[in-house]
């Protein structure tokens, strides 16, 4: 179980995705174990005016606690945080979530760059960033932030994506540590689980 040479230092996982990422996200949430030791902070592009149903759909096959956090909510290990519709989601020093209604970024609110960059600022080298399938370049800058702060970066293999624009944009913008198919991303998270537990 040391295929990815992971260390125990990691404190959080942050995941971004857009078009074509929903099924992948469902599979990830279905595959990781309930006692996953890190918080999973997730920003997926979604319809702005639909507040309901997203968490429910992601929860169907998962035994994990999945929530759309309130502003100022504490970040806890093992919980999956999903950016609510029409809000940007950031991580604050002090390990809390903050939400905002600032301008759209990359034509998106929530924007992946905002979640990723703010997480990188707080967790620095202790952050794992994963970017899935998507149809625009959002997330590329975020992955660059993570890489610059010394965190580890993973993108879904463009060949494995429904739409490969997003991972390709990230690959062209910054150093990516691992390019993995969805099944391998799940292996990666399982190894992270084993390394970081207790």
């Amino acid at each position: 179980m040391t295929r990815f040479k992971l260390e125990k230092k990691y404190k959080a996982v942050v995941i971004g995705g857009s078009a074509g990422s929903f099924q992948g996200m469902v599979k990830i949430l279905e595959s990781i174990k309930p006692d996953f030791p890190l918080p999973i902070i997730t920003c997926l592009h979604r319809l702005k005016h639909v507040r309901h149903g997203f968490v429910e759909a992601l929860s169907l096959k998962s035994n994990k606690k999945i929530i759309e956090p309130y502003d100022k909510e504490s970040i806890k290990p093992g919980i999956v945080y999903i950016a609510p519709s029409n809000y940007h989601m950031s991580v604050e020093l002090g390990n809390t979530i903050s939400l905002s209604t600032e301008e759209m970024v990359n034509n998106s609110r929530p924007a992946i760059d905002i979640t990723l960059c703010s997480s990188a600022h707080v967790y620095r080298e202790k952050l794992v960033g994963i970017l899935l399938s998507g149809a625009n370049k959002d997330g590329g800058l975020g992955m660059k932030c993570i890489s610059e702060k010394g965190g580890i970066t993973v993108v879904q293999d463009p060949k494995d994506c429904v739409i490969d624009t997003m991972p390709k944009a990230a690959l062209s913008m910054t150093n990516i540590d691992h390019v993995l198919k969805l099944d391998q991303i799940i292996d990666f998270l399982n190894e992270l689980h084993a390394v970081c537990k207790n």
């Binding site: 950031s90 991580v91 604050e92 020093l93 903050s98 905002s100 600032e102 905002i114 703010s118 600022h121």
Partner: peptide
């Protein structure tokens, strides 16, 4: 003010 958004602004 909340730090992350103020910083972005």
């Amino acid at each position: 003010y909340a730090m992350s958004s103020l910083k972005r602004r």
